[in-house]
Amino acid sequence: MKKLNRRSFLKGGLAGGAAIAAVGTSKQALAGTHNFGGYPDSMGVLVDLTKCVGCRTCEAACNKEQNLPEPDKSFDDPSVFEERREGGLPRRTTEKAYTVVQKYDVPGREHPLFRKVQCNHCNEPACLTSCFVNAYKKTPEGAVIYDKTVCVGCRTCMVACPFYIPAYSYSSPTNPVIKKCIMCYDTRLKFGRPPACVEACPQEVMTFGKRKDLLKLAHQRISDKPDAYVDHVYGENEVGGTAWMYLSDVPFDKIGYDTHLGTQPIISYVKEFLGMVPMVLTIWPALFTGFHLLSNRKDAAKNEENKS
């Protein structure tokens, strides 16, 4: 029998490593050409920022539908638009507000531009990828929901989200959990109804429908009125596509949208590494235990012989 020495063991290790690398590259090649792209009949919302008048009815409707706590200020108080947090940034989503409207004074634009912020419900959500207790789920209807009973409050999803959406119940000292928009999944979406904000909006800023239909509608709107919009549907391809998509008459980077997120889902940057984790944790111990046993079998047998 061939003796397994240190050299042959290392050779074997190298061959194994090459095999892993080969699998890794083929996965990478796949990722470049093929994305999940979302469930085929998932729903979405097309937000036409040119129509928003900043009335905050969506915020009020969200507060009621989600049974959120009383707001600090009335929903008809426009002073919230001037509030600034660290870094001079406008309001963001919090545990008390799953959606907020921001105001942007754009030079050269006759009126301020209002932008509604909430979870974009990614096709391949980074929050879901990052969650180690699997609290998150992307439903076939299109919503990214989460199970707060399993959330351990680690806040990894807050770091992972490219849109800075998940908020945290810092007010709860005993059981702080993640809080975010669920597209009214529990009360509306799963019954085929639009989210509360969509239905409440007086201006029909938001169009609810199948994501694939909304994309056609978005491009039709741009081609019907090319002077009224920039030729970009934000969310069509960003981070692999999102259920909520936006039309604007102002370039998106001028109104707080991150235009450098790329078109790959966040998971594609980490899936090779994450794909190796189970292998390292399950196959490697068994493999190396096997190597160990093989290399020691002769010695063990010799020991037995010596004993007898």
Partner: peptide, 10 residues
């Protein structure tokens, strides 16, 4: 009531 305004103001 829904706007938390008027007599419903915080």
């Amino acid at each position: 009531a829904i706007f938390h305004s008027g007599k419903y103001a915080p």
